[in-house]
């Protein structure tokens, strides 16, 4: 077997999301709030870019 490359090793050692995180990523209620928050942040950035 080929030795693991640095990239493979980094991926293998990267933190996995917990069950709670995975649930939140799909939870409709929580995601609606994230949708609003992200779009607000994006609009702030966009309005800055227009001046």
């Amino acid at each position: 077997m080929e030795p693991m490359s640095e990239v493979d090793r980094n991926i293998a050692e990267a933190p996995l999301p917990t069950k709670g995180t995975l649930r939140r990523r799909k939870s409709l209620g929580y995601q609606v709030t994230r949708f609003v928050a992200f779009n607000f942040r994006m609009m702030k950035m966009v309005t800055r870019a227009h001046h």
Partner: peptide
Amino acid sequence: TQTSGEIGLSGHWTKLL
């Protein structure tokens, strides 16, 4: 404060929007 990243369903909604 303006550099952020998050993964989730809402990102898909934003992309579709």
